[in-house]
Amino acid sequence: MNAEDAQVIGFTLATAALSTLIILPFGIGLAWLLARAKWPGKSLVETVVAMPLVMPPVATGLILLNVLGRHGLLGIGARKFFGTEIVFTWKAVVASMAVMSFPFLVRASRLAFEEINPRLEQVARTLGSGRARVFFGITLPLAARGLIAGTVWAFARALGEFGATILVAGNIPGRTTTMAIAIYSDIQLGDEGHAYQLLGVSAVLAFVAVSLGNRFFPWGEKR
């Protein structure tokens, strides 16, 4: 394990954490809307959100490349308003991780909200509480275990993200190389020993994350 490895591990953990933080409010908000509200286009949004789960990650990466690239809508916006490029930078790594892990967060959070008896929220409102107080005082605490599980799974998925990231962020040592990309790169270059070292670190991180996720998953006991 050398300084370069430490940088790759640290970079992967930091970008995965940042992507999870970014999707957290949107994922939880959307999960609540899917679980509790009826609105036009709901099933369409539901399908689009789940697509990264079943589409080849490289295909999702290609879509991201078009959206975030020089001529893409968000790419143009980022350059115009923030004077920055997204593709082939750490921001592209974060964006790929966010898109690929978003469905995990939404699915687990939605299940967590659906498990709550809506009568509790209705009664809380008849007791004089507005929607916000009910959400933060009743809904969120009761869904907390499921939301934490979803967050941990999203983080774990972000840690392992490869297909979309390699296309949108490339493999620029010290700038966009994540653990998954470093393992792939080592295998390509014939440095299998180093690849197995990183594999060991990835396995430990994945084990810890999935164990934590299962521990918080509120329906684990029923299975």
Binding site: R119, Q122, V123, R125, T126, L127, G128, S129, G130
Partner: peptide, 11 residues
């Protein structure tokens, strides 16, 4: 609205 209706509801 529910929160201003002033009913004590016990389901």
């Amino acid at each position: 609205p529910l929160e201003r209706r002033g009913v004590g509801y016990v389901p």
